[in-house]
Nucleic acid binder design. Sequence first.
DNA 1: ATCTGATGTTATAATGTTATAACAATGATT
DNA 2: AATCATTGTTATAACATTATAACATCAGAT
Lengths: 251, 251
Amino acid sequence: MIEASKINRNLKVPYYYQLYESIIENIENNILVEGDKLAAEMELCEQYGVSRITVRQALKELELNGFIVRERGRGTFVRRKIETHSLQKVSSIVDELRREGIKTENKILVNKAVIPEERVKKILNLNSGEQILFVKRLIFAYGGPLYITKAYLPYRITGKISTRVLRENSFTNIITDIPALKLIHSKRILEPAVPDAEILELLCLRGSAKKVIHYLQTIWTARYAQETVTLYFEEYFNPTKGKFVFEKNYE
Amino acid sequence: MIEASKINRNLKVPYYYQLYESIIENIENNILVEGDKLAAEMELCEQYGVSRITVRQALKELELNGFIVRERGRGTFVRRKIETHSLQKVSSIVDELRREGIKTENKILVNKAVIPEERVKKILNLNSGEQILFVKRLIFAYGGPLYITKAYLPYRITGKISTRVLRENSFTNIITDIPALKLIHSKRILEPAVPDAEILELLCLRGSAKKVIHYLQTIWTARYAQETVTLYFEEYFNPTKGKFVFEKNYE
DNA sequence: ATCTGATGTTATAATGTTATAACAATGATT
DNA sequence: AATCATTGTTATAACATTATAACATCAGAT
């Protein structure tokens, strides 16, 4: 496969990144499909006219973002695509991606106790003046921002949660680790929405063609000691990164 | 002028280059016009959220490519654009730009002695089997490819010319430095043309709106010892970078 | 004459990108 | 068992990008 070099040396974009994008393009256009063997590293060097360092950096990124797997002595192979998320599971998408070995990154944008707006107060069924822990978190996967979560949690239940814990764990894990808290029900509502400027910016959709996102609300009901409490999440999904699949088993 | 930062930190493009492009955009959209004072370096730092090094690197590029002038103690100003070239002068455009202090870069694509095609042989009035020196050169200015020159020169006059000499000198200088060669006449013919794939590619016009270029032929007649010889040049100009002006003084 | 604001210069440092090279370790083939 | 192809690792080096900081120099205004 003698390909013309796709590295544009006039561009200010690093060569390894151009190569990274070039290979993703091949995968997304089904020129390379699941299980296919990529050209060997040295072959890629020749095809693209770059050094092995550069090729390996591109492959490293592809591996971290779950596009390929590399096997010493054998070669580099296209990984199956993970691009649907099940809504039926309560377990989080972060856990789902982690189980698949795909690197996710986490950025905690907000983590503080506040008095919530009226809308949220109603959903959580709070006493007046009661504080919530408000967390805003941005998740990166597949090499870009995947979604934003806003969590509205009764502060008297969660207390402070360190930013480090938030960065390193899914909300499912954090919540189920709270002693004396038992999840009893969850409800998820998905709808398309037009994002506001902040969400647009965070998901890097400014200037993008797709201006409609997935807006997912999750309401967890739980027993805490003798009372019934509610946890509320809002999530905003990058539509270019993944689609949702609805599955249901009829008995 | 509190501007939102236009630096995209997710992009792999260097910040200084994003800033460079951002300012060019302002100039091309007449948000900044000839003679306008740019914000001071430290102001730009704040507006774009980058260090002075970064701002200065952007300004350096803008200066080299002729978009701005900087004056110590006063500030940075939008320069008038040199976007017309006189056709009346025999002297080259490279020299013209250099005199204005605008950086030009040079890439020699071909430099070899060959037997010319029939068309060229007729123009140069060559003996059958006589070789020419064929040079293809790409000139960059204003931060992009400006034009391509194809030079067809009788080999017995020029001999070999090193690629380094071609890179560092205008053809006018090279030719007039040949001993015993005296220019006696020049004729230039300008016409619009549709470029072939190679020219399109070299001038970075693939995908561009403007698909018509300037095609300029130059025929120099000269005395060389006792004989009359002809030098022939073809040039292909990027229409987005510069326009030609026709001027003539009537006596 | 002095101060202020602007660009010019220099030094230090951390990190990112790219190339070249040699060698190690593994899987598959002969 | 030996060899070959392939990915993994390490070292060295050059250059690019970005930040922080201090000081020099010049133009214009008070």
